[in-house]
Design a protein around this nucleic acid. Structure first.
Lengths: 135, 135
DNA sequence: GTAGATGCAAAGTATTTGCGACAAG
DNA sequence: CTTGTCGCAAATACTTTGCATCTAC
């Protein structure tokens, strides 16, 4: 297990308020990729007084701090996920919206190669596969 | 050269209005990937009376008809591009916003393989590389 | 002639922000 | 204490929509 979100906040000098602690906790316990609205719902169950503005401010802060990543999957709202060392991409079930995380070293390597071919250093990438379940 | 957008409209039974003709023409002449606002600007220079609502309606229609594709690159607004047979992905210069189109057959193949590994049939995908130019 | 398209302005979403009250370090 | 955060509501940005009018076929 890697650092908790709380530990990350401390080590990055982010002030740890009650609200942030709750949002961090909820994100840690979420294995799906909630959007801000959904996160707000979950957080509200723990502390009903937290405002949605704080949730927006916090996910943005956590994203800038490298604690969360933001995904903008097709047509939907922004969704967030905890950022750990292990990078991965996403396979999205177009029927159910279910998300499967995967890693493919070979694809990663090829991406770097493509960028280099055009004279670029790869700093980030996004790969999303959309599929339907085979019977 | 493949079919023009106008030909595609005819063959797909999309009514060809003056506004659509202009939007089609502007998209055909755009080698970058304009967002709706930019497209509206360009279109307005040809016919100032076209409303932005029509531009939104038209890009959506063209997207559903398979004439344009929509991209939602990081943090920005939706951007559109003409859809031709040749599929390609994008390499985005994070400094300048410049977009390079590329194709890598090997990556395509691997994507299909990954989807299959999880029991899915790949119906769509999105690959974006973000890079900085090497000196 | 008729179904569908347009322009306009109003309504939706998703997200951000100004501000006075409040809490963490 | 002091700086930064919070809650609230108002503001913004992007996109969609209702409706009366107009146009392609």
């Amino acid at each position: 297990m890697s650092e908790t979100i709380e530990q990350k906040c401390l080590s990055k000098g982010v002030k740890l308020t009650e609200q942030r602690r709750i949002i961090a906790q909820v994100m840690s316990e979420s294995s799906d990729h909630p959007d801000v609205d959904e996160l707000y719902n979950r957080v509200s169950k723990i502390d009903a007084k937290i405002s949605i503005a704080t949730v927006y401010r916090t996910v943005k802060l956590f994203e800038e701090t490298g604690i969360l990543t933001k995904h903008e999957f097709k047509g939907g709202k922004a969704r967030y996920e905890e950022l750990n060392e292990g990078h991965h991409d996403h396979l999205i079930d177009v029927k159910t919206g279910e998300i499967i995380e995967f890693v493919d070293e070979e694809i990663e390597k090829l991406q770097k190669k493509v960028a280099e071919k055009y004279g670029y250093k790869l700093v980030d990438h996004k790969l999303e596969l959309y599929g339907v379940k085979k019977k």
